Simulated assay, not measured.
Amino acid sequence: MTDASAIRLVVSDVDGTLVDRAKQITPGVAAAVARLRAAGLPFTIISARPRSGLMPIAETLAIDAPMGAFNGGTVFTRDGR
């Protein structure tokens, strides 16, 4: 069992993991991310998608932690940094 206090960041892939077959965030995923935030755990995403393909997800989930596009080749934040 993992000590929850040792977790500093939760990172998820997008396609085949975070979005459904229609490439949409489900209410269950949104609720899970909200529970992570309520527990004080930051959440972010990484994907082979380009930055433009991640931004709608980042907006929907209000991700403020750095994200990785192009399998981590580009690291950026939602505000453009």
Rank of each mutant, 00 (worst) to 15 (best):
L36Y: 09
I25A: 00
R49F: 12
V19R: 06
A30T: 04
K23G: 01
R81A: 07
I57H: 10
K23P: 06
F43P: 15
S5W: 06
R49E: 04
G68Y: 02
T74C: 10
A32I: 03
V29F: 03
I46W: 07
V29T: 15
N71P: 01
V29Q: 04
G72A: 03
I63L: 15
S5E: 14
A48K: 15
Q24K: 13
S52L: 08
V29G: 09
D79P: 00
V33A: 13
I45S: 02
R78K: 03
S52E: 15
A4S: 11
M67D: 10
I45W: 12
D79R: 10
T2F: 07
A30V: 02
F70P: 01
G73P: 03
I63G: 09
A58H: 08
A31F: 06
T2Q: 12
A22S: 11
M1L: 12
I46L: 13
T17S: 13
A39H: 04
R21D: 14
R49V: 13
V33M: 08
Q24P: 05
R78V: 11
L36H: 05
T26I: 00
I46H: 06
L54Q: 13
A22Q: 15
I45G: 04
S12W: 05
V11D: 11
G16V: 14
R37E: 12
D3A: 02
I63K: 07
R35F: 11
T26M: 02
A32D: 07
A48C: 14
M1N: 14
L41C: 06
V19H: 06
T60D: 07
T77A: 10
A34C: 04
P50A: 08
L41V: 08
A4Y: 09
L18V: 00
T2W: 12
A30L: 08
T44W: 06
G53Y: 08
G28C: 00
D15K: 06
A34T: 09
N71I: 00
G28R: 04
M1G: 15
P56G: 06
L41N: 05
S47V: 13
A65F: 00
V75F: 02
I57P: 12
A34N: 01
L61M: 08
M55A: 07
L54Y: 05
S52M: 07
R37M: 06
I57G: 08
A31P: 10
I25C: 00
I7E: 06
D3N: 15
A38N: 01
D20H: 01
P56E: 07
S5P: 08
S52W: 04
V11Q: 10
G28A: 01
A6D: 14
Q24V: 11
F43N: 01
D79V: 03
L41W: 08
A31E: 14
F43I: 01
A30M: 02
V11R: 10
G53R: 15
L18P: 02
A39T: 01
D64F: 10
T77S: 10
T44C: 13
V11F: 04
G53K: 15
S47G: 15
I25F: 00
V29M: 13
